[in-house]
Computed example of a mutant assay.
Amino acid sequence: MLTVVGYYDWQSDEKSVSDQDFFVHCSGRYRLLHKEEFQTERPLGAANYQLIYVADGKAHFRIKGKLQILEKGSCVLFHPGDPQFYYYYLKDHPDVYWVHFSCKKDNLFLSQTGWGEENIYNVGVHNSYIHLFDGIIQELQLKQPLCEEQLKLMMQQLLLKMGRNRIRENKTFENYNKEVEEALRIFHLSPEKDFTIREFARERGLNYYRFIDTFTKHVGTSPRQYIINIRMTTAKELLTNPLFQISEVAQLTGYENPLYFSRLFKKIWGLSPTEFRQQAEKGG
């Protein structure tokens, strides 16, 4: 299982609470690669809020005694004390992000952005969510100066984007382009695959220019840049594992030329793979 996590401190978990107005304790990503299943059962729930976002595949939740199978684009908000039962299975190809945070029960920001007492929300598939989750995880890992304030802003931005897009998805889901949904699924399953967008469109009988325009409109970036973003995010995760050489990370993310990979990585993240690895090892 691919596991990437970040903690404010190593005591931060589902038991953590804060008296601050808004505080992020920990965040992470789970993606099953070989393990057949992963399950969490907390009959008494957590002391804080937990937001779980299904970025790809499917995830199983038992909420209020009823089993719910949620697909990508769905999220679950567990309130403090809500029983938590959720299960991931390899056959469903789940790719899930999560975050634990504290805020006051009558927090005005939550209510203003559409987060009520219910647990399940359809917020759609949006690349901006992934960037924010990855940013939150990295902020928790590196703990730069003023990280508490930065985490608060990023968490609120995530909730705001999801709230706005939830309204949009409820109105336009019927018209959501299936070609884009299929592309997103394939890009996430095999981001390292060597193909051109023109070939991708031709294999599916799509008009190349229409596909580019439609994808960019719905996702906010071009298909090629979206694939690069996935690859570079995966590269960051792999670089935190010292067992992988940089040349191996390049190959695993679809780049035969390690020098080209290193230049592209630095262009995206501002650090070379070696510098990023050194910084991650030092914890800041």
Results as ranks from 00 to 15, higher is better:
Ile227Asp: 05
Tyr7Arg: 08
Tyr88Val: 13
Thr240Ala: 08
Gln138Val: 15
Asn241His: 11
Asn107Glu: 10
Phe195Arg: 11
Arg62Phe: 13
Gly284Glu: 14
Leu132Ile: 14
Leu77Arg: 06
Lys15Pro: 03
Tyr176Asn: 07
Leu33Met: 08
Glu248Arg: 13
Leu70Val: 03
Asp95Cys: 14
Asp106Cys: 03
Glu37Leu: 09
Tyr176Gly: 07
Pro43Asp: 08
Ile69Arg: 15
Thr233Leu: 02
Thr40Trp: 10
Val125Asp: 01
Ile137Pro: 01
Gln141Lys: 11
Tyr255Thr: 02
Pro273Met: 06
Gln225Arg: 14
Arg204Ser: 01
Gly163Trp: 04
Pro83Ser: 09
Ile136Cys: 11
Gly135Leu: 11
Gly28Trp: 04
Gly124Val: 07
Leu151His: 07
Asn127Leu: 02
Leu142Thr: 15
Gln144Tyr: 09
Gly57Phe: 10
Ser190Lys: 05
Lys236Pro: 04
Glu41Val: 13
Tyr86Gly: 03
Glu281Val: 12
Gln39Glu: 15
Phe276Gln: 11
Tyr87Pro: 00
Asn122Glu: 14
Asp134Tyr: 05
Ser128Tyr: 09
Phe261Ala: 06
Gln11Pro: 00
Pro94Ala: 11
Ile137Lys: 13
Trp98Pro: 01
Tyr260Trp: 08
Lys35Tyr: 09
Cys75Thr: 13
Lys193Cys: 10
Ile130Phe: 04
Leu264Cys: 05
Ser128Arg: 11
Tyr226Glu: 01
Ile63Cys: 11
Met1Lys: 09
Ala46Trp: 02
Leu90Trp: 09
Met155Leu: 11
Thr196Pro: 02
Phe187Trp: 00
